[in-house]
Amino acid sequence: MDVDLEAVLEAKKAQYKSIEVRKDVELQYDVGNLLATDLNPLDHHAMKSRRDEYLKGLARDNTQLLINKIWQLPVEKADGMILVELPTPSTVLPREKPIPKPKGLTAWETFAKAKGIKNRKRSRMVFDESGQEWKPRWGYKRVDDPKDKWMIEIPDRADPYEDYFEKQAEEKKEKIAKNEYKRLKNISRTQKGGRLKAPLPPPLTKDMSKYQLTHALGKAKEATASIGKFTKSLPDEPVPKRAKKTQVGPVAGDMAAERKKNLEILSSVTKRKEVVDAEKAANRHMAQEQRSKRQKQQSEGVFSKGIKPKKTQPKNRGRGRGGKNRK
């Protein structure tokens, strides 16, 4: 059978859309980011009548244009694969995390700023006179390294039996600890809110006050894996004072339990008042007396004719501490 090759090709071609897309305004490309921006206005009529179809077509056309653009780049072939090296992206993307805030000044930096002290650049290498060679000012194999000294001269009128090498090592350790403490203090000062949540323990020095020692001892006792549960106390050890922690119930938890607790508190509050109140009892007694007196007077009719009742003599007359009448 005779096959019309051209017709078959045409038919095959007609299945796919053309790779050529015509646009009124050309797209903006950032091939490095595989980004194409279409600035052409949308066809509002098409958007209303056949929205999905229109948008799909638009996406297809623009993707085609982007791919056309990629194909214009130089192509390499490696291991039977076609590779394109993308150019550097031109669109600036915002960073994921916020810009870090500038670090606060350390104690020394604030002081230097106030005094107008400026850093002088000092050379890293120093000439060592004794060794006749250049050595670094600090760090490994530094100049005047105490490790190089095999002998230390004992100072005047000092204890000759003390280990001065050990003393030196101790001093260095102390310096490191002090520096670390200052570093932490710098961080705590410059952090938001002024200071770290827990106050820094005081640096362990020889001249600590009694309070500081007690505090440090309390902290050290608790600094074990079992939070000081098995730490033995020394005889007559001072107990550091601690603020009582108040317990607050949940905002909206078990209401029945809360009510029960409130009732318990209420009963304890009202119970205290059930003790005989002398004042109240006296008042009640006075009221009763007054009432009975009034009733008595009314029944006798003493006040009915405006006659004053004869005053009865007080029983203790002449017996008390009587001032003028005293004999």
Binding site: V251, R259, N262, L263, I265, L266, T270
Partner: peptide, 28 residues
């Protein structure tokens, strides 16, 4: 937040000065 025990006691003491035992009817 809910009141602590101490705060509850202080509040109840003040309220009971006015309502006495009847405070029970406010709680329950």
């Amino acid at each position: 937040r809910a009141l602590t025990d101490e705060e509850t006691r202080v509040v109840f003491e003040k309220l009971s000065k006015f309502v006495g035992e009847n405070l029970r009817y406010l709680v329950e």
